[in-house]
Simulated scan of single mutants.
Amino acid sequence: MKEILPNEVEALLKGGKPINVVDVREVEEVKAGKIPHAIHIPLGLLEFKMQDLDKSKEYIMVCRSGGRSSRAAKLLENHGYKVINMTGGMLDWKGPTE
């Protein structure tokens, strides 16, 4: 599984290149803030919502600390999606939130 650091994700955001971030935290966690333009799909719903994602795009998976996003990345990878896990999760995120 490919991995990326939070500061690398922030650099991609600042670079203006479109990136696809999927936040798999629970609703209450996301209310505290998420990476701008991230798609919110709680981990428990990902299996049922994955068909809404485009297999031609690459997705950066995010959670609180990196554990749930790792599980989400493995699930999507097993179904043919291109994914990268953001290690450290939102605990290590220093960039902007919305």
Rank of each mutant, 00 (worst) to 15 (best):
C63V: 09
K31T: 03
G16D: 06
N7R: 11
L45H: 10
L53R: 02
W93I: 05
K49N: 11
I39V: 12
H79C: 02
V9E: 08
A72H: 08
L45Y: 13
G89Y: 03
Y81A: 00
M1I: 14
K17S: 05
A72F: 12
V27E: 15
E10D: 15
K94D: 11
L76R: 10
K34Q: 14
Y81R: 01
A73S: 15
G89E: 03
L12V: 00
G89L: 00
D23Q: 04
S65K: 07
V27T: 14
D54M: 00
A32S: 15
K34W: 01
K14S: 09
A72C: 07
I19S: 05
K74S: 08
P6Y: 01
K82Q: 15
E98M: 09
N20T: 05
K31R: 09
E8H: 07
D23W: 04
I84K: 15
R71N: 09
F48S: 07
C63S: 15
S69D: 11
M86R: 07
V22N: 00
I35H: 06
G16C: 01
M90I: 11
D54T: 01
D23M: 02
G15T: 04
Y59E: 00
P18D: 14
P36M: 12
I60N: 08
K31Q: 13
L53Q: 01
K94R: 14
L75Y: 10
M90L: 14
P42V: 05
R64N: 13
R68T: 06
G33F: 10
L53V: 03
D23V: 03
G95Q: 03
R71D: 10
R71K: 11
E47N: 11
K74N: 08
M86P: 07
S69A: 10
E26K: 06
P18L: 09
K55C: 14
K2M: 12
L75W: 05
V21C: 08
S69N: 11
G95Y: 04
L46H: 06
I39T: 13
H40K: 00
K34V: 06
E98K: 11
I39G: 03
R25Q: 07
R25I: 09
N78S: 15
K57F: 07
